[in-house]
Design a protein around this nucleic acid. Structure first.
Lengths: 229, 229
DNA sequence: GTGACGTTTCGGCCGCTGCCGAAGTGTTCG
DNA sequence: CGAACACTTCGGCAGCGGCCGAAACGTCAC
């Protein structure tokens, strides 16, 4: 009787196409009403409702009631981390020259992964910060004193991130690039700062991001990162 | 068509009790013949064979043919990492005083998580190393120069771990304790050293470990870690 | 070669699950 | 208060998936 962790319920919850679409949509950390999710997945409202009930039952998703609308969202950063880890497994390794749709290409450039920056932007930042001694180790991404000062200097709530209940820094393996980037409470704080400062803007819907001209200039000026490369 | 990562196949693969048992058994990184897995899960050989084919198809498991026996094992450390992340989600947080079977208690004390030490032993080591400056940061577990020297001094193949293709250090969230411990190539190197030196021994089957008297004395002498606490 | 053995493939049964449309519940708006 | 709306629950259908035993396959031992 050596079974100690039962993946059955989680697996069943993940194992339906419509639910997979829902989770992907919710990976940006936003809450969405049931109807929007139903439309996005191409199923009827009743079917979507049943799917959402399954996800809630499995603990992957939580609901907030807003009047006659119900907003569904991921149950927490741990869920997002698990989905990222799982996502890193699916599909073959991205061989160079693999053809991508324009949509995928935009996602690969910059996006939110639940609450922190990901895509090539996230990786470039982690690279630069490791290079310049703001993070101690490219593999582990530990925050140094210099890094704490530097991030405070650009308006990131470093102390809030350190005080948070979740781990301050955490590595997250990128889906598209297969490289690590910064997650955890600090990653979330950086993401909030980038949005607030207007260095990135959200796509109309979903977790895609566009780096603004101001953002592009800022990262080049501050860390010498050239995002057009 | 915003779906970019499809969890359906992985989810279906995880969503059967017998397969969950298989994966749990394989979490120690060992390969096992189909028959043994069938017996452990309480299903017929034919059923087990079908399940294993599903797991292979999903990329979670690989086979090695040894004569007329076939040994199944996890497809890599990324799979183990994803399963750990998923496992951290299941079940309620371990409220204090929660009753555990003796089997579970032994697993909670020390075990292999795919290829690195986990359980209270793994956490105690991470704590001690962070405390003593061998790892830069309890949250990120970045290896310091002092840590590299120290681990080399006790016979851990630090340089091999640094040169490895996978990340040198990585944090892994413990199932039972909900705390981070050291994984990645360095975690694996530490695990190999602990086994080779006889500081831990494997249980008869599965991923459980017993810390030997020599191991207990060693960790107390070297880092002041008292495992009886 | 022949027989034993570990594993896979096949056929068939049963139950679960996804899907929908219709009806029901609760909320907002006029 | 009643109609419109967002969502959930219910009933019913179709198909998939898990299970087994029987048979086929490949390998090892003698």
């Amino acid at each position: 009787m050596g079974r100690d962790r039962d993946f059955t319920q989680l697996g069943k919850a993940l194992g339906a196409p419509a639910r997979s679409v829902f989770l992907n949509l919710l990976m940006d950390g936003a809450r969405r009403p049931a109807g929007e999710l139903a439309r996005a997945a191409g199923v009827s409202a009743s079917t979507a409702s049943e799917h959402l009930a399954v996800l809630v039952e499995a603990g992957l998703v939580t609901v907030e009631v807003h009047g006659r609308s119900r907003r569904y969202g991921l149950a927490g950063s741990q869920v997002a981390a698990a989905l990222e880890a799982l996502g890193a497994l699916t599909g073959p390794a991205p061989v160079s020259g693999y053809r991508r749709s324009r949509q995928m290409e935009r996602l690969a450039a910059a996006r939110f992964c639940y609450d922190h920056l990901a895509g090539r932007l996230g990786i470039a930042l982690a690279d630069a910060w490791a290079e310049q001694g703001w993070l101690a180790d490219r593999a582990a991404l530990a925050l140094t004193d210099a890094g704490a000062d530097g991030l405070r200097g650009i308006g990131v709530d470093v102390d809030g991130a350190i005080a948070a209940r979740r781990p301050t820094t955490r590595v997250c393996l990128d889906w598209t690039e297969r490289r690590d980037h910064l997650a955890g409470a600090l990653g979330a704080a950086v993401g909030r700062r980038f949005l607030a400062a207007g260095w990135v803007v959200r796509h109309a819907s979903g977790r895609g991001l566009d780096v603004t001209d101001a953002g592009r200039a800022f990262v080049r000026r501050t860390w010498g990162v050239d995002l057009n490369a």
